[in-house]
């Protein structure tokens, strides 16, 4: 027997940058489209709409995610932070400031996603998460420094067609350094990019 058709719209409440937004959504609406088309939060960018570029990266429950593959209705109850929510008032987040100072962008379209991703990369590394660039993933090997190679691997889900990668890695390294206690740094003050070859 055919099931009763279920509604294709829901009224949901999204918690974004500390504010609650209640809105009816078509279940097809992605979090990305809800942000951009419904809530006028256009800082989150649509590059591919298929999870293949990272431009739409936001933080969901503190973790980075691509909002183009996240249905808005399934994001209800989660804590969402977008690029509009990472600065403290007029004070830029250290990652934002580093991108600005070191020219970690050109056209700027991938930039909000890169910045949200970078904020999470620094936290993931601090939490001890390994990456594909980590030589020894066993916990007994300890936490390895956030080298340029580690940053590159961890940031690889964010494409930048202008090719600003080198400055982005420098910016992430600088912001990560600033976020760490002085002894736990990943190298000298120039960031890690000059430190070693890539392979």
């Amino acid at each position: 027997m055919a099931p009763a058709p279920s509604p294709t719209y829901s009224a949901i409440t999204l918690n974004i940058n500390g504010e609650k937004h209640t809105l009816p959504v078509d279940h097809r609406t992605t979090l990305l489209d809800a942000l951009r088309e419904r809530l006028d939060l256009t800082g989150t960018k649509k590059g591919c709409d298929q999870g293949q570029c990272g431009a739409c990266t936001v933080l969901i429950d503190g973790r980075r995610a691509v909002s183009c593959l996240q249905l808005a209705v399934a994001a209800e109850g989660r804590v969402i932070t977008t690029i509009e929510g990472v600065a403290e008032g007029e004070d830029l987040h250290p990652v934002q400031q580093a991108f600005l100072d070191l020219d970690g962008y050109q056209c700027g379209y991938c930039t909000p996603g890169q910045i949200c991703s970078a904020i999470a990369v620094i936290e993931e590394h601090a939490a001890g998460w390994p990456s594909a660039a980590t030589q020894d993933v066993r916990p007994e090997a300890g936490v390895q420094p956030l080298t340029a190679e580690e940053i590159r691997e961890r940031m690889s889900g964010n494409l930048c067609r202008c090719g600003a990668y080198v400055s982005i890695v420098e910016a992430v390294a600088q912001a990560a350094e600033a976020a760490q206690p002085p002894s736990g740094g990943s190298g000298d003050g120039n960031g890690a990019t000059e430190a070693e070859a890539a392979v």
């Binding site: 980075r64 995610a65 691509v66 593959l69 996240q70 594909a132 020894d136 993933v137 916990p139 889900g157």
Partner: peptide
């Protein structure tokens, strides 16, 4: 930690897939 310690090849396989964002989802 148990995955990384007992099955490090599994942890590496997962980390080789997709991106940090997609692995979180």
């Amino acid at each position: 930690p148990d995955v990384r310690s007992r099955y490090p090849g599994l942890a590496q396989a997962v980390l080789a897939g997709a991106s940090g964002q997609l692995r979180n989802m």
